[in-house]
Amino acid sequence: MNLKVKDSLIQQAESPRGLLYRMVIAYTCLAVLVIFTTALTQSNHEHINFYFVVNFFTIIILTWFIRKSFNIMSRASYVATLRIGLFLLLNSTLISMAGGLNVLDNSTTSVSAAMLYAPAIIIITHSFNKYITSVNSNYQSAVSLAFTDELTGLPNRRHLNFKLKEIENKRCTICIADIDYFKNINDTWGHEMGDKVLASVGLKLMNLSSNNLFIARSGGEEFCIIITEATDAAAQIRNICAFLEGGCNGGVNITLSVGAATKEANEMSSWVMERADAALYQAKNSGRNRIVFN
């Protein structure tokens, strides 16, 4: 299966359908034509100056902006509100153009343009704040999904890699824990039971996590535990193993084999991970359900 993922944060519709945005474009073109024709009819063509040019290009930009707003694939109310604010701003600029060409008198132009401009800015500002809130919320959700293991709810391997970089210059204890005989659980009760065991273990480990105790699912039935506080790491690991034992893991009793290694401040995390992994194999080869420090 070829999975294609777009590389833009805000997805846009490829070909927006509907008459609304076409009506806005048609309305703008007609309004400009009427204003320009009226100015020529009233022999006001001498007023086609820099002021008119600025308004004319402002109208083009606002029309383009409104057109682009219809490409945003969202049903959120702030998108519709933004379009309303832009439309009011567009009309304020059209009135300013009419005043610049002497189609309207200065007093009418100033009052009418201001009455549209002020609410337009308020509406656009409000919509933009809503948009920023929505983007930040979606970003936080995306980050959470990217760094969380879907089955266990624990930090995933990607999150673990960032954590390992974070502790490069710190002293800590790194452990790799493996559920004993997990393959037998899958073979005996099926993979669904295996998933239940992993989910149950993940929930328990999540309750133990703290600022000084980072626990992630590093892959399969393996979990990585990083103890950053300078305490009795061996006692903490024993407490974790004891906490996980029992029949609440999908109805299956489990035990853990744990390989641990102490990381000094001048050691690379990858080297310590290798030592912890070697200690884990020692624990498994020497009977499982035990902790081995390397």
Rank of each mutant, 00 (worst) to 15 (best):
L30T: 02
G202V: 02
A234V: 05
N156M: 07
V292M: 02
A13L: 14
R75H: 14
A76D: 14
G219S: 12
D187K: 05
N249A: 05
S141M: 14
I225P: 01
V201H: 00
G18V: 03
T231I: 05
V111G: 01
I291E: 00
E46F: 07
F56E: 11
I291H: 01
F50V: 13
T41N: 13
G99C: 09
F162P: 03
Q140F: 15
T28G: 10
S200W: 09
M193C: 08
S69T: 14
T63V: 07
D178G: 04
T231Y: 01
T152N: 00
S69I: 03
S112K: 01
A216I: 02
M23L: 08
F128Y: 13
L244Y: 07
I25H: 08
I240C: 01
W64T: 09
A113R: 11
S8W: 06
I185L: 07
A26P: 04
R67W: 15
A235S: 08
T41S: 06
V197N: 02
D277C: 12
T231N: 04
S74T: 09
L154F: 12
S127K: 06
H159S: 13
L104Q: 07
I66H: 04
S218G: 03
G220D: 05
V5H: 13
T38Q: 14
L62F: 05
T108D: 10
I66C: 08
F65S: 10
I185K: 03
S137P: 04
F70A: 14
P16M: 09
